[in-house]
Simulated assay, not measured.
Amino acid sequence: MSSNKETFGKTVGFVFAVCLVCALLVSFSAVQLKPLQQANKLLDQQTKILEAADLLELAKGDIVGTYNKYVEAKMIDLDTGEFIEGNPDLFDERRNSRDASKSEKPKNDIAGINRRSHDAVVYLVRDGAGIIETIVLPIVGSGLWDLMYGYVGLEADLNTVRSVVYSDHKETPGLGAEVVNPKWKALWPGKKIFDEQHNLAIKLVKGGAKAGDVHGVDGLSGATLTSVGVEKTLHFWLGEEGYGPFVNKYRNGGLN
C-alpha cells in the first residue's frame, strides 16, 4: 500500500513539474515574442495606410521609410473636429470603445459599433513639397458576421475617394470577403462621398452602378449584407457622429 502511494505521489509530482515547465516556457515565449508581434502589427497598419493613400507603389518595399517620410498621424476630437494633444502611437480605438469613460453610444448607430471613442487618429499624407494630398481615416462597422476594420483615403477636398482598404474582417470567402479583392477596390478611386449640397451620397448599388455615377459603387455580388454594412459604415463615419465635424471644418483643401 505504501509503495502504491509513493508511486502515485511521484506521478502527480512529475505531472506538476511538466505543467510548471510548460507554463514557464509559454510565458517566456509570449514575453519574447510580444515586441515582434507589435512590430508586425504596426507594419501591417502602415502598409494599409499607404495603400489607402495610393503610395504602395512608391514605397517599393520600404514601408517604414515611406510612411515616416510622407505620413503624419494626428489626434482629433470627433465631437468638434478639432486637433487635440495626444500620442497617436498609444491610441487604441478598440480599447477606447470598450471604456465608458472614453467612448459614447452613438445616437444613430447605423454602423452597428455599439460605442464610439471620443477621439480618433487621422493620417495626413503630404507630397514631396509638404502639401497635404490625402487624408486617411480609420473606419469600423458591422459586416455579415462581425465588425470590419479599414481605412478610407480621401483627397484634400475630403470628398474624392482615393481608396477604401479593409484590414480586418471575418466575411465569407468568395462573398463578403471580396472587400479585399483588387478588382472591387479598383472601383473606388474618384468616387464622391458627398453631393454638391454636402449631403452624404456614396452608395453601393446592387447589380452594379450606372456609368458616370460618381456616387455609386458596384455592390458585392452575393453579399448584400456586407455591401449594406460597407455603405452604412461610410455614412456613419463621414456623418455628424463620425468625422463630419472634421470634414466640415477642413473640406475643400482647408488643411493646407
Rank of each mutant, 00 (worst) to 15 (best):
residue 98 R to D: 09
residue 56 L to R: 10
residue 50 L to N: 01
residue 87 N to T: 11
residue 95 R to P: 01
residue 76 I to E: 01
residue 97 S to F: 05
residue 88 P to K: 10
residue 80 T to H: 12
residue 54 D to L: 09
residue 94 R to P: 02
residue 67 Y to F: 15
residue 67 Y to G: 02
residue 94 R to Y: 07
residue 68 N to E: 15
residue 57 E to M: 12
residue 78 L to M: 11
residue 68 N to R: 13
residue 52 A to H: 00
residue 95 R to S: 13
residue 62 D to M: 13
residue 92 D to C: 08
residue 58 L to F: 12
residue 54 D to W: 05
residue 79 D to R: 15
residue 54 D to E: 10
residue 55 L to Y: 06
residue 61 G to T: 10
residue 74 K to T: 02
residue 102 K to T: 05
residue 93 E to C: 05
residue 88 P to E: 09
residue 82 E to F: 10
residue 52 A to S: 03
residue 64 V to W: 05
residue 99 D to N: 13
residue 54 D to R: 11
residue 67 Y to H: 07
residue 52 A to E: 01
residue 83 F to K: 02
residue 86 G to C: 06
residue 80 T to Y: 13
residue 71 V to D: 01
residue 86 G to V: 03
residue 59 A to C: 11
residue 93 E to L: 09
residue 96 N to V: 07
residue 81 G to C: 10
residue 65 G to R: 12
residue 76 I to V: 11
residue 74 K to L: 04
residue 76 I to N: 01
residue 100 A to C: 05
residue 60 K to R: 13
residue 75 M to D: 02
residue 82 E to V: 06
residue 62 D to G: 14
residue 68 N to S: 14
residue 95 R to H: 09
residue 67 Y to S: 06
residue 99 D to A: 08
residue 86 G to L: 05
residue 72 E to T: 07
residue 62 D to L: 14
residue 59 A to P: 07
residue 65 G to K: 15
residue 79 D to L: 15
residue 68 N to K: 14
residue 50 L to M: 06
residue 58 L to P: 07
residue 76 I to C: 02
residue 93 E to G: 04
residue 99 D to V: 05
residue 69 K to C: 11
residue 78 L to Q: 01
residue 84 I to K: 07
residue 98 R to F: 06
residue 95 R to Q: 12
residue 80 T to F: 13
residue 77 D to T: 10
residue 89 D to M: 13
residue 70 Y to T: 04
residue 102 K to P: 04
residue 78 L to W: 01
residue 91 F to C: 03
residue 57 E to N: 15
residue 54 D to Q: 12
residue 66 T to L: 05
residue 71 V to K: 01
residue 90 L to W: 05
residue 96 N to H: 09
residue 77 D to S: 14
residue 65 G to W: 09
